[in-house]
Amino acid sequence: MENKNKILVVEDEKTLRFLIVQSLKDDGFEVYESIDGEEGIKLAKESKPDLILLDLLLPGMNGFDVLSQLKRDSSTESIPVIILSNCGQEEEIERGMKLGATDYLVKAHFTLDEIAERVKKILG
């Protein structure tokens, strides 16, 4: 397939990352993965993904910090970010959306298919 959409997955949990990456690849996306925030930001700048799936609880820098850095940097600010986390308190969702996330999904409430659907919808 030409012009594959590129997705960056920032997720520290090995099994979750494996499953989500595999599912997106099966759907024909080109997938980059990173296990922490620092690496995620670096990859976002280098590979210019079309969309980022971002976990919140990460080793070192947390997802909120990653998000605000991405939104402050002119080279990454326009990339849509979906927060994909198991934290689902109202204040966390509010904070994520305020920082500029396009969507906020609680992992436990979504199937892999549903997540892929959201991704496709945002990429239009």
Binding site: K107, A108, T111, D113
Partner: peptide
Amino acid sequence: AHQLRTPLSEINWSLEVLGSEK
């Protein structure tokens, strides 16, 4: 509760993959 959610999501998604017969 939050810690429980992570492994449960893993199981959930793994079962989903198996069920999809991919």
